[in-house]
Design a protein around this nucleic acid. Structure first.
Lengths: 337, 337
DNA sequence: GAGGGGACTGGTAGCGCTTCCAGTTCCAGG
DNA sequence: CCTGGAACTGGAAGCGCTACCAGTCCCCTC
């Protein structure tokens, strides 16, 4: 905004005129479609350069019925959920994959009622070529909206209670099972879990993994101790756990944030980690490496998750029918267990 | 995508026909513009409901020459810079403010050359109604592009070496000065700084704050010890600092990530914090509360920064001429100093 | 040298919406 | 009962681009 006159941008008509061709040819040259002679193609390119022409994306969108943008919708009534670095990594992956495909990324934090409405409009009014949906809760109104949308929808993680046609998820159950089995294999007999919100599929799946591992070892699993995936929630859950089961010697926390909270509570309670209580997290965020002691955790490929979601969406937009993807997790052993 | 026929969405024409009015009236009714009788307005509303009509945002954009979207561009050659939770908070603020104004948020991680090009197109081709620009480096090519763009541009933080017409920044110098003065006031005589990248204005401004405070107290400031705003960088810088100035008793780190790294190095070196060395950070991210010991740090209103950037942009898009904003910081005293 | 096919070309019809403007309707006031 | 003006209405002209299609041109083959 140089403050000068609001100069109109050159249009394709002007480019065509300057290049001495028709608008159609100019259009084809620009989209390097066939049926343009070499000479005219070059003339068009020259005209574009001279005029500093940039195609108007809106007009193009109207004509092609493609917006050139994909939306990433993050549900959840509390916008602070987004503060979880998890999403930042997803975005990095999705952004890179979309960029490759020439799509823009629209980010929708569907927290407020108003935000939800706007997502609904987006979905129903073709405001984007496709949508990636994450962090859905049980009975999330977005789920139904997505179902009805005449638009490709890829889920990141699965919604509770239904398996969408297209999704990318991490192997939550497998990862949680591996974590728990690891604790058991290290001689921990009283292993508890601080599970995430059980109104999310990730929370449930990770609890299932814990339970499966316990049952597999012939030990009664403890009932789920639910927390909200935050550090504070993890700390509180750990405190409650100590109060009820003072003899616990291993904890699988369903994400790193809660694990870090648990570490804090244990430290404050004077319990040595891992000597007295071993702790395993889930996610392998940056915080896991920095925690004290460094956190043993289940690594999930978060950036890849974003990338694959975007790729799946791109395939869908391109008329293909990709298959859902479940990404592998792996245990990263550090000092806390 | 129910898999059914790709049913065409109802258009305004159909709404108008059904309501028994002309397209113009229907349009006006929808945008609740004047010159529509009550009866027709209601008829239109009814038709909209019956048909499940949603205006096509692309067509609207073409006609109004407004895209209804604002872009947030985060520069930096390394996309992992985005992993800094700082940006997540900015996004939360910006998203909320844009939502209020009815604008969508496009997120551009301008890391690769390709990404940069796409931003350039966005800027020159009116792909958005306005742009928020962050994390510019010295000689960032984006700066010039923004200058030439016929489009409102708001800077988050200031680019090195120039003061843009519209920006929102935190009081970096003031905050850094306060942090350093606090260390000095607690009897620390050998205060060093781990400063951020000096090819960013934030890095420079915070170093200036440190230097000013030192000079104000009549003490020679140490030369800037540059790190890259990451935890690993902070840890390395702290190690180097200990090697060169073993008697340091206070450290001001230019952000929390580096401060946490410094804490780790100090712990590993067996230096007690704050007894032997006091540490102060900058940002007041979540990690500061969780650090061991909890980090004394300079709080900056990051969400507000995002919010105010967006508001400024909205004002600009609306034809107003807002004034730049410098947001206050404040020292949050915890255990590390 | 005529016929045929393929590579180009440009006119034209949209895409779905807003907005200008000329025309119509409706009342209050004269 | 007529007039003037305000409120309302709808036809039509775009916004800038793509895409279909009929037409032109060139060159190769029989």
């Amino acid at each position: 905004m140089a403050g000068g006159a609001p100069r109109r941008l050159p249009t394709l008509d002007e480019v065509a005129e300057r290049a001495g061709v028709s608008r159609s040819v100019a259009s084809r040259a620009l989209n390097n479609a066939p049926h343009v002679s070499r000479a005219k193609r070059e003339a068009v390119e020259r005209a574009v350069r001279q005029l500093g022409y940039v195609p108007n994306p809106t007009a193009r969108a109207l004509a092609t019925r493609q917006t050139g943008a994909a939306a990433l919708v993050i549900s959840g009534e509390d916008p602070s959920i987004f503060a979880d670095p998890f999403f930042a990594q997803v975005i990095v992956g999705a952004s890179a994959a979309l960029e490759e495909a020439g799509l823009h990324l629209m980010l929708c934090l569907a927290a407020s009622e108003r935000g939800r409405e706007r997502v609904a409009e987006l979905l129903r009014g073709k405001g984007a070529d496709g949508v990636m949906l994450m962090a859905l809760r049980e009975d999330d109104p977005l789920a139904e909206l997505a179902e009805q949308a005449e638009m490709p929808v890829v889920f990141g993680g699965r919604p509770v209670g239904s398996t969408p046609r297209w999704f990318v998820d991490a192997d939550n159950t497998g990862g949680a099972r591996e974590a728990t089995e690891y604790l058991l294999s290290r001689g921990r007999g009283r292993v508890a879990t601080i599970c995430g919100r059980l109104d999310t599929e990730a929370g449930r799946a990770r609890y299932r993994g814990y339970r499966d591992a316990m049952l597999g070892a012939g030990i009664d699993p403890l009932p789920p101790r639910e927390a909200d995936f935050t550090e504070a929630g993890g700390a509180a859950a750990m405190a409650a756990l100590l109060a009820e089961h003072g003899d616990v010697d291993g904890v699988f926390a369903a994400n790193d944030n809660m694990a870090v909270g648990a570490l804090r509570t244990l430290r404050e309670a004077g319990r040595a980690v891992p000597a007295e209580v071993a702790v395993v997290g889930f996610d392998d965020l940056a915080v896991a490496r920095v925690a004290d002691p460094p956190l043993t955790t289940v690594h999930q490929p978060i950036t890849a998750l974003g990338r694959e979601m975007a790729r799946m969406l791109v395939a869908l937009v391109g008329g293909q029918d990709p298959t859902p993807l479940i990404l592998p997790t792996r245990l990263v052993v550090r000092a806390s267990a």
